[in-house]
């Protein structure tokens, strides 16, 4: 059995970017662009728009590498949170004020410490588990979660769109998230 080479940690690559190392950005792009683009495509359903957002995010990472604080949260979490916010802003044509409300603190602790998604194999396994877990949910629960996450709808909007009482939407989301927690445990 041969030992797998350990990937260079994100924190070390970010440190290299601070000194202007383009190769570090290239490595991070190779590591996370497919994961990110998958989510962006799911939200935007437009390959060109999704790729534009993807490029913007990595350009921002390059520009702001000096300000990125790895202690506040993981890089993939930051990428997913910022990517989702931007894609939904674009999808829904949100105004400047709402775009400006993108909170940098949102990425803090968004992935649990035990989830090593810097490793490609573990990341792929986690993604498969999540897809399977969502697939096991009753359709109405899955729909509520997906409308919120991928369409960026608020609870009131989901209730209006589906014609289901607000309280029921709340319960469905809550039950779905509880189920996901149990399935993923």
């Amino acid at each position: 059995m041969t030992a797998q080479p350990q990937p260079v940690p994100d924190s070390a690559l970010i440190e290299s970017m601070r000194t202007g190392d383009e190769a570090a950005l290239s490595t991070l792009y190779d590591r996370y662009s497919a994961m990110l683009l998958g989510m962006l495509m799911r939200i935007l359903r437009d390959p060109q728009a999704a790729e534009e957002v993807l490029q913007d995010i990595f350009l921002q990472l390059w520009r702001n590498a000096a300000q990125f604080d790895a202690a506040r949260g993981s890089l993939p979490a930051w990428l997913m949170v910022i990517g989702r916010n931007r894609a939904i802003s674009r999808l829904r044509g949100r105004r400047d004020r709402e775009v400006l409300e993108e909170e940098e603190g949102d990425y803090a602790n968004t992935f649990a410490s035990g989830q090593n998604i810097e490793d490609e194999a573990q990341r792929a396994q986690l993604a498969r588990n999540m897809a399977a877990a969502l697939g096991q949910l009753p359709v109405e629960q899955r729909q509520a979660v997906e409308l919120a996450y991928f369409e960026g709808m608020t609870q009131s909007e989901i209730a209006t769109q589906t014609g289901i009482p607000l309280g029921t939407i709340k319960t469905r989301v809550r039950t779905a998230m509880q189920s996901l927690r149990q399935i993923m445990a």
Partner: peptide
Amino acid sequence: ARQRTALVGLAAPPVAPR
């Protein structure tokens, strides 16, 4: 709650950019 919700995005199948 954020740890759980952040994982939802991973459910979208990865797409390799051009």
